[in-house]
C-alpha cells in the first residue's frame, strides 16, 4: 500500500470510529469538546502545510481563522444570509486574504515572516477592538461594524435545532467530523503528492529548488491559498457551532496553544498535528483546575518539545 492509500485508509478508519461515539456517549460536554477538537484539528492540519511542510513561519493562521469566522458572522448578521453559503463565501474570502499575506511574505526569510504575519494578525485584532462607533443599534445595544470587543451573536445556525431538537449538538459533531475528514485527506494528498514535494523542496533549499524548476512565487501562493480555504471554513464552522464570535480568536494564548499542537505532534508530518491536538486538548482538560498555571504549563511543554523532541511525537516512532 502506498503511503497515501495508508493515510486515506487510516483517516476513514478513524472517522468511522469517531462516528459511533455519539451513539455511545451522548453527554453534551464530551460531544461538544470533540467538536472543538475537530475544529482545532482542521486548523492545525492546514497550518502545518505552511509551517511544517513548506517551512514558512507564518503566524497568521488565527487571523485567517478569524476572517472565516467574522466573514460568516457578518454575512449572516448584516446580510441575513443562510449559514452554508455564508460559510463558503467567507472561506473563499479567507483564501483571498491569505494570498495577499503570502505575497507580502515572499521576499522575507524565517523570523521576518513570523514578525510580519504576527503584525498583520495584531493589526486585524486592533482594527476589530478599536472600532467603537455604533454601526447599528440592536436591542442589545450599540454594535460597531466589526462587532468591537463584544463580537457578534444571534445570526442563524445550521438548522440542527429544528431537526434534532435538544440533540442539535450531535448534528454539529458530524459536520465537524466530516470537515476534518475532508481536510485531513486533502492534506495527505498534498503532502504526498507533487505539490507537497515542491513545498518541501523549497523549504529545504530554495535556491536549489528554483534551479530545478520549482517557481517560488507560484508554490508559495499555492500553499497559502490552499491551506487558507479549510482554515477559513474551520472559522466559519466555529461561528456556526458556537453562534458567537469575538476578538478572543486573535488571542496569543490561542495561537500558542495551536502552535504547540503542531510542535508536540510533529511539524511537517501527515498525522503529527492531529496527534498533537488530541494530546494537548486532553492535557488541557487535566490542567483546567490549575487556572493560571495552564499557560505556564503550555509554555514549558512547547519549550521542552522544541529542545528535546524537535520532530515531535511522530518523530519518536521513526527513530
Amino acid at each position: 500500500m502506498t503511503p497515501l492509500r495508508r493515510d486515506i485508509a487510516a483517516s476513514i478508519a478513524l472517522v468511522a470510529a469517531m462516528a459511533v461515539v455519539p451513539l455511545i456517549f451522548d453527554t453534551r460536554y464530551v460531544i461538544t469538546q470533540l467538536t472543538v477538537f475537530f475544529i482545532w484539528g482542521i486548523v492545525v492540519t492546514q497550518w502545518n502545510l505552511v509551517l511544517g511542510v513548506a517551512g514558512i513561519f507564518s503566524l497568521a493562521q488565527m487571523a485567517l481563522f478569524a476572517v472565516g469566522a467574522y466573514g460568516t458572522a457578518m454575512l449572516a448578521y448584516y446580510g441575513g444570509m443562510a449559514m452554508v453559503p455564508a460559510m463558503v463565501i467567507a472561506s473563499l474570502a479567507t483564501v483571498g486574504v491569505s494570498l495577499v499575506i503570502g505575497f507580502a511574505c515572499l521576499r522575507l526569510k524565517g523570523p521576518y515572516v513570523a514578525l510580519l504575519t504576527l503584525a498583520i494578525a495584531q493589526m486585524l485584532y486592533l482594527i476589530v477592538v478599536n472600532d467603537t462607533g455604533c454601526f447599528t443599534n440592536p436591542p442589545s445595544g450599540c454594535l460597531p461594524l466589526l462587532g468591537g470587543v463584544r463580537g457578534f451573536s444571534r445570526f442563524g445556525d445550521l438548522g440542527f435545532r429544528d431537526l434534532l431538537g435538544s440533540k442539535w449538538f450531535v448534528g454539529h459533531y458530524y459536520v465537524g467530523l466530516g470537515l476534518l475528514l475532508v481536510a485531513q485527506v486533502f492534506c495527505a494528498f498534498l503532502i504526498r503528492g507533487p505539490l507537497g514535494l515542491a513545498f518541501r523542496a523549497l523549504r529545504d533549499n530554495p535556491g536549489y529548488a528554483m534551479s530545478r524548476g520549482v517557481g517560488r512565487l507560484k508554490y508559495q501562493l499555492w500553499v497559502f491559498g490552499l491551506s487558507a480555504f479549510f482554515t477559513g471554513l474551520a472559522g466559519a464552522f466555529y461561528v456556526a457551532h458556537f453562534g458567537v464570535v469575538g476578538p478572543i480568536v486573535f488571542s496569543v494564548s490561542m495561537l500558542l496553544f495551536l502552535l504547540a499542537m503542531i510542535v508536540v505532534g510533529g511539524m511537517g508530518t501527515v498525522w503529527g498535528p492531529l496527534l498533537g491536538a488530541a494530546v494537548l486538548m486532553i492535557a488541557d482538560e487535566g490542567l483546567r483546575e490549575v487556572g493560571d498555571w495552564r499557560e505556564i504549563g503550555l509554555g514549558l511543554v512547547l519549550a521542552g518539545f522544541v529542545i528535546l523532541l524537535p520532530r515531535g511525537l511522530v518523530g519518536l516512532r521513526r527513530r
Binding site: 507533487p194 514535494l197 533549499n205 529548488a209
Partner: peptide, 21 residues
C-alpha cells in the same frame, strides 16, 4: 553540495523530473 536534505534520494531526483521540464 546542494541537496534537499530531508527528502529521500528518489524525491530529490523527482523534483527535477516533475518540475524541471
Amino acid at each position: 553540495n546542494a541537496c534537499f536534505d530531508s527528502l529521500t534520494v528518489r524525491e530529490n531526483v523527482e523534483v527535477g523530473a516533475i518540475f524541471g521540464r
